[in-house]
Amino acid sequence: MLEALQFEFMRNALLAGLLTSIACGVIGTFIVVNRLVFLSGGIAHAAYGGIGLAFFFGLPYVAGTLGFALLVAMVMAAVTLKARHRADTIIGVLWAVGMALGVILLDLTPGYNVDLMSFLFGSILTVPTSDLWLMLVLNGVILLAVACYYNDFLALSYDEDFAQVRGVRVKFLYFLLLAMVALSVVMIIRIVGLILVIALLTIPPYIAEKYAGSLKKMMFLSFLLSCFFTMVGLWLSYTFNLTSGATIILVAGVCFFISLLVEVLKSTRFFSA
């Protein structure tokens, strides 16, 4: 692994893994505790429409994806606030329509020959330095917003009604949260692709939740786990010449099942004692 670091693409891959882990830890934690997993999956897949738009109109990839993902996130925020009991259906529709739009637009783009697989499963080994700067900025925005409104977000996540009674601007914060989910999703698509993004946003916080005493600690622990998963996955990918996105998720998946097993063993011991 160490000799691999002499290559710029390997150094970039490691840095990209570390940077996305910040978003995974912080935003993934909110996604898990607020049960936004399905909604985040919707944003990730609908973002494919943004990729299609970017190629069709010759826009920069990032501008297209980020813009479209943000738009979809805001629509989903409005819908889930207005019609809570039908929210899952509408998310499902946006999920599918976004992807279909992307596919059609890429069909219509003349001379399109970009590797589709790299968007579906990520391409951490081809992250250019300019993307690293973008990730740094997006992470900066996320960390600043969460640091500023941490207590409000905590109250919103734990007891929304109570937060509103206290005069917390819950609607604004909900929109802000979903906007940050969109930013994170676009960032993480780079690493593991839009199909696997949900695994990286949910597995680290799920494991961390059991051991963390507070939301802050859960975020930090998820960040560490996410770093571990991307590093080990990257090493496996490099050593055995496998698709990096898939190895990262499989490492995370193995740890997920180990954590479940540990939990089961713990509870049986608890009952037998």
Partner: peptide, 28 residues
Amino acid sequence: HFNQSFPISVLDVVLMGKLRPGLGWSRY
């Protein structure tokens, strides 16, 4: 309706009662 697996301490729950209206740098 409370999520029993939510990682939050007793003190942090009580502190929610001290949240102030509006938006701002939220610190206790």
